[in-house]
């Protein structure tokens, strides 16, 4: 009961603060088993993605998060375990023998969908960091599960790193066309393709100051001809 209430409060707050718009561009919000893979620039990313799903999908979709961060305090443990029903993974590889993907595979086994951030860490710059290999290995192990790219736009401006008070700017969450690993496709090729598919979802209308709309010429002027 309290869990449901907390979930409702957190998702409502996230939606109100960001005016969250879900754009289902490449697939429909249906109860297919999926791995949503998204860009990661803010601690609020999985909350907003989770809140952008219809309630019936939300109940069967579990965010994947780092155990090191979420097991630090009782409140964090409560939120990630009870409210979000998160899948915690050991990023520090405390047991080198264990398969770090095992908790995710177990969750997929029960029919649940996952939210993952293949960059592995928060990216404070534009664009995307190179992807970690987990997405590829999950896709190989479970070819029946759809791999859906999701671009979360503007949330890094709403919750900039190190600021307590969020800004009420508008965010959008774009869901792209599901990908599948092609026959004998290499890890590098697939991860590159997945990264491109995710980047393609970035809205054109909101480039950051860092990437000017009209690229500044970087080539030096032609040297003047010797007279």
């Amino acid at each position: 009961m309290l869990e449901k209430l907390s979930a409702f409060a957190i998702t409502s707050l996230a939606r109100m603060l960001t005016g969250a718009r879900s754009l289902w561009l490449g697939c429909a919000p249906v109860a297919t088993q999926r791995i949503y893979f998204a860009n990661h620039s803010s601690h609020g990313d999985f909350v907003l993605l989770w809140a952008s799903l219809p309630p019936e999908l939300r109940a069967r979709t579990r965010p994947v998060a780092g155990a090191d961060y979420w097991q630090k305090s009782a409140l964090r443990r409560y939120i990630i375990n009870k409210v979000f029903n998160g899948v915690l993974i050991d990023r520090e590889r405390s047991d080198p023998e264990a398969n770090p993907l095992q908790p995710m595979l177990d969750a997929l086994e029960t029919g649940d969908s996952l939210i993952i951030f293949p960059e592995g860490t928060r990216n404070l710059e534009d664009g995307l960091l190179p992807f970690k290999g987990g997405l590829y290995r999950l896709g190989l192990a479970r070819p029946d599960v759809e791999l859906v790219p999701v671009w979360i736009a503007n949330l890094n401006r709403v919750m900039p790193k190190g600021r307590a008070l969020p800004l009420p700017l508008l965010c959008s969450v774009s869901f792209g066309t599901p990908l599948a690993i092609a026959e004998s496709e290499s890890k590098e090729t697939f991860l590159g393709r997945a990264r491109e598919a995710l980047l393609a979802l970035e809205p054109d209308g909101q480039p950051d100051v860092e990437t000017p709309v009209h690229p500044v010429a970087t080539t030096p002027e032609q040297p003047a001809e010797h007279v």
Binding site: P160, K161, L167, L169, L170, Q206, D208, V209
Partner: peptide
Amino acid sequence: FYALREFLTLTPTRRSDYPALAAAF
């Protein structure tokens, strides 16, 4: 509030503009 939010969403700012944006809202 809604108008300001739409305006500032579409006008790019940098991370160091946070104090000015927070003051605005």
